[in-house]
Amino acid sequence: MKLFIGGACQGKRVYAETVTGITEWIDGNVCEYDEIYSCKAMTHFHMYVRRCMEEKKDVSELAEHIIERNPDVVLVANEIGYGVVPVEAFERNYRETFGRICTKLAAYSSEVHRVVCGLGTVIKHD
């Protein structure tokens, strides 16, 4: 598994393409829910999680399921949770839940890259 994280609009996907050679992506904004378990690579993974939560799907073991069923997947996600704690309960829950999911995935990943201005820093490499 490889994880590419960073702020919005930082060129994460393009950077990830140059690192991994992957050119086929599915989009977490619009994909089917089960595609997370069959795809090679997903962009907007944070939106995938958000959509699941908006539809009240159980995401408490999402990280474990991805690790078990699609251990080589490449995920690109916005790094969220760096703003003032939101007033709305859903937003608070979303950012914390997404953080916990990414923490589990990062622990499993062989590589984690953090992208700023299109430039990646490898923050984990096995």
Binding site: I80, Y82, R92, R95, E96, G99
Partner: peptide, 11 residues
């Protein structure tokens, strides 16, 4: 003194 910082839900 050791300062530990980070985003929400980051461990």
């Amino acid at each position: 003194i050791h300062l530990v910082t980070g985003g929400s839900g980051s461990g």
